[in-house]
Design a protein around this nucleic acid. Structure first.
Lengths: 148, 148
DNA sequence: GTAGGTGCAAACCTTTTGCAGCATG
DNA sequence: CATGCTGCAAAAGGTTTGCACCTAC
């Protein structure tokens, strides 16, 4: 199963970084990988607690921080102050369009966009670590709904 | 003076929206317009209190929300959970590079970037209202500092 | 006069932290 | 068996809200 494989990759990577592999981390990682949505920390906590009710909130936050640092998870601000995460394993980098009406998130990618961002940074000697591009607006369905 | 003129534009626009023009709003708007930095709500509060010590925190937050809705102010997440604002009056749109070491913010603009974003949105029928592009990394000075 | 704005303080929400006990490597 | 992880609960930080009073229109 693909999930087990990914789970193994994360385990190996974290252990290589000197982290211990606990039952909680295993559960949190598995749950995060299995979630094909952009989740909040609280949502992830709930999902984990459905399996093991005594996982603590602090552990979820701490594990998310580790995963983010290791590059397996990426945080994105939703523009309204909220924070959501997505796992990026076997997920090539992409940007997001966020519908302001239904909160749907659409992913897209444009190579030329990436290149030009790098070029702009190079121009002022800025070393890029990551970037975040979000386009806010109204998705096709909500435009229709409004009219209809 | 340019500031007075801008202040007048904001006043007119807010009144047209049915808002009342109070001494507090006037002060908050003037202060925000005069600040040529990316400020937090708390910093704006402090600046206002330097003039009138009894301006309340709630009023600053409420006014910032109105200004943002009216398009005079734009919020940007700093990537570390923080939120900063900038006024966008007579300020053409630009994107930001945020140094993760010294927190400096560099503004840049690339027409082709804008065009390609619009094109990507059009492709899926998404109506763009605004966008936010932030590049995180290390600025030239901090790269030097690290080496030196 | 009335709807909207204000100040205060408390509530809220999300995230972080201190600490004592526990389990991994 | 030492160090890192966990759970708990409390603290922290930023933002919002309820309410009574005030004021622009």
């Amino acid at each position: 199963m693909k999930l087990d494989q990914e789970h193994g990759i994360v385990q190996a990577a974290l252990q290589k970084r000197g982290c211990r592999w606990t039952a909680q981390r295993s559960l949190i990682v598995r749950t995060a990988l299995a979630t094909h949505r952009h989740f909040t920390a609280e949502e992830l906590l709930d999902l984990c607690r459905a399996v093991d009710p005594k996982v603590s909130r602090a552990t979820v936050y701490r594990t998310l921080a580790v995963l983010e640092e290791a590059g397996f998870v990426e945080g994105l601000d939703t523009g309204d102050g909220g924070r959501r995460f997505e796992h990026v394993l076997n997920h090539e980098h992409h940007d997001h369009m966020v519908c302001q009406r239904c909160a749907s998130i659409f992913e897209f990618r444009d190579e030329e966009l990436e290149r030009r961002q790098d070029a702009a940074a190079r121009r002022i000697g800025f070393k890029v670590e990551r970037h975040s591009l979000r386009i806010y607006g109204v998705c096709r369905d909500c435009q229709k709904a409004k009219r209809g």
